[in-house]
Simulated scan of single mutants.
Amino acid sequence: MAPGRTLGRDLALPLGTVGAALLVTALMLTGGSAPAPVALAAFLLLTVAFSALARPVVVPAVALVSWLFYDGFVLNGHSDLAFRAQDRTSLLMLLLAAAAGACGAAAVRAVRRRSAR
Rank of each mutant, 00 (worst) to 15 (best):
G72L: 10
A110V: 10
L29I: 10
L95K: 03
G32Y: 11
A26N: 06
A107I: 13
A63M: 03
V59P: 02
R109G: 08
A52V: 02
W67G: 01
V65Y: 05
Q86H: 10
R88V: 15
V38C: 03
L91T: 03
R109V: 12
A42Q: 01
F83M: 15
R109K: 07
L15T: 02
T17I: 13
A49I: 06
T47S: 06
L68G: 00
L96E: 00
V65W: 06
G101Q: 00
A110F: 14
A110C: 13
T6I: 14
A100W: 04
V74W: 06
L68D: 03
L40K: 08
D10V: 14
P56V: 04
V108F: 14
M1H: 09
A34M: 11
D71V: 05
A39I: 05
A42N: 02
V18L: 13
P35L: 10
P3R: 03
A110Q: 13
R9C: 15
L94T: 00
L81T: 12
A105R: 05
L45K: 01
A34N: 02
V74F: 09
V108P: 06
A116V: 10
L22R: 03
L29K: 02
A107M: 14
A107R: 11
R117H: 07
R109N: 12
D87Y: 07
L22T: 02
A26D: 07
P56R: 02
A34K: 07
V74Y: 05
V62E: 08
V48N: 04
F73L: 14
S115W: 15
A63H: 06
W67Y: 01
A116W: 14
S90T: 10
R55I: 02
F83C: 10
P3M: 03
L94G: 04
V38G: 01
G8Q: 06
P14F: 14
F43A: 02
R117K: 08
T30A: 09
M28C: 07
L64K: 02
R84E: 07
A100Y: 09
T6Q: 08
S33Q: 06
T6E: 12
G77D: 07
A54H: 06
V74M: 10
L46P: 00
L81V: 13
S51A: 15
V62P: 01
V59Y: 02
R55V: 08
L44F: 08
T6W: 14
D71M: 10
R113H: 10
S66H: 07
A39S: 07
S51F: 12
P3N: 00
P60K: 00
A61Q: 07
R113D: 14
G32D: 00
S51L: 09
A52C: 00
S79V: 15
V57Q: 04
R84Y: 13
P14R: 06
T47D: 04
S90E: 03
V18I: 13
G16Y: 07
V58A: 01
L96P: 11
V58T: 05
A26R: 08
A54C: 14
